[in-house]
Amino acid sequence: MNLILQTLADGLVLGGIYALAAVGFSLIFGVMQVINLSHGVIVVIGAYLALILSRLLAVDPLLTIPLVMAALFVFGYAYQRWLVQLAVERSSLLASMLLTFGVALMLRNILVWIFSPDFKTISPPYAFVHFHLGELTFDLVRVSALATSLVLLCLLAAALHWTRFGRIVRATAQQNLAARLCGVDARHVYALTFGVSAAFAGASGIAIGMVLPFAPPDEAFWTLNAFVVVTLGGVGSPAGALVGGLLLGIVNTLTAQYVGPAFPNATMFLILVLMLLVRPSGLLGNAFSPSR
């Protein structure tokens, strides 16, 4: 009984981080139907940035979040405006997906040059502190990473709901043409969306870096993970990402515990394929527009 509760609790912690790591991917997909295959590499870049900054400034890694997010926001904006948008206009959505894959390969290679292919960790001073709740054990690091993820997800949800940017994003996703007729510069909105997406991906990288060791090749995992989360939960909303992330986290820990440590990946992809076949718009459906 304790084992299953502990497994579920671990799954929730993992799932919260998955959700934050996927939300940007989901936003881009929902707003412009672009599959950003460089999403995972941005997550990993976030972890490396936090690693450098927290050492350089000698602060808690969580305190580097605003800096990392700001830097990656600028990167994401420029990336969409001057690269992805060109690909979408010149060829097709599928081709734009290949472009983002090319960028992912380049960035991953650059990360290997700078940081070597070895695993790194960001360990805050409280790395080995844990506490008990009833009979369950929680690491402080994991809990603070989860808390960070949930707070950021709520902030994003609030921003999408109440700010002008949020309203424009939702309008653009619902009806591109209509939004343009109302005087919205769709390209600017797209670029902003990419910026926000990259910023949140970077923030999730920090949470991930605190909990798990990371290396440049992990980027592929985080991209696929985001895809599965979005397929599970539904495209385009923080709520969908949260539902998908928590489910995937629980499924992963349960599979590892009760089927075998080698099987979470197989389960994850099996779920991906089955969900696509049974309910391609995710459990919560698409928050914005029909997804196919």
Binding site: L224, F269, L270, L276, P280
Partner: peptide, 23 residues
């Protein structure tokens, strides 16, 4: 499935077979 959904579903299929083959 069409477009991107087919592409990704096939990626998923390949990974499922790879994991099963390996395990």
């Amino acid at each position: 499935l069409r477009g991107i959904y087919f592409a990704i579903a096939m990626l998923g299929v390949a990974h499922v077979f790879a994991e099963l083959n390996n395990n």
